[in-house]
Each structure stands twice: as structure tokens, then as C-alpha cells.
């Protein structure tokens, strides 16, 4: 591998930084799944909203791929 290629590489982020977004998505998913169990009406709406976050994250990534 040439020196230029190495120089052009972005710095390696810390593991905490890499996992920050996945952790938010994980917490949103599980919170949505559990809160939806606590009743009908508002808790269900909360579940839909929270579980939509990971889905929208994937949709966004696919929409802007290049």
C-alpha cells in the first residue's frame, strides 16, 4: 500500500464513537417494543414512533448512497 493511500484514510474513530448511533437505535427499538406493551392508544403511538427511527435511518442511508 502506498504512503498516499494511507494518508488519505480517515482517522480511526474510537469504538464508543462508532457505536454511538447504533446504541441510540438499539435503545429506541427496545424502548418502543416494551412501551407498546403498556397499553393501547398513546403507548402504541410511542411504539410506532420509536420503532420507525431505525427504519428511517436505513431508508436515509439507502437514499443518499453514492
Amino acid at each position: 500500500m502506498s504512503g498516499a493511500a494511507i494518508k488519505s484514510r480517515p482517522r480511526r474513530a474510537s469504538v464508543a464513537r462508532v457505536l454511538a448511533v447504533p446504541a441510540v437505535l438499539l435503545v429506541a427499538s427496545i424502548a418502543g417494543l416494551v412501551l407498546g406493551l403498556t397499553g393501547d392508544g398513546f403507548p402504541d403511538g410511542l411504539a410506532w414512533g420509536l420503532l420507525s427511527i431505525p427504519i428511517l435511518a436505513a431508508v436515509y442511508a439507502f437514499a443518499r448512497r453514492g
Partner: peptide, 28 residues
């Protein structure tokens, strides 16, 4: 986060999709 490399080999393209969807749907 969310990188999907499309101008590389087919393996890279498929690998990025595997990783992105895997981490996004992890909780569920």
C-alpha cells in the same frame, strides 16, 4: 455510520448493506 459504498466490488456493496441493515434492525 450508514456508509454504503456502491462504486466498489459487488462484495463491498453487499457487505455494507449486510452491516447497515444488521446494525439498524439489531434491537428488533
Amino acid at each position: 455510520f450508514g456508509t454504503l459504498r456502491t462504486r466498489r466490488s459487488r462484495r463491498v456493496k453487499v457487505l455494507d448493506q449486510h452491516n447497515l441493515l444488521g446494525i439498524v434492525a439489531l434491537g428488533w
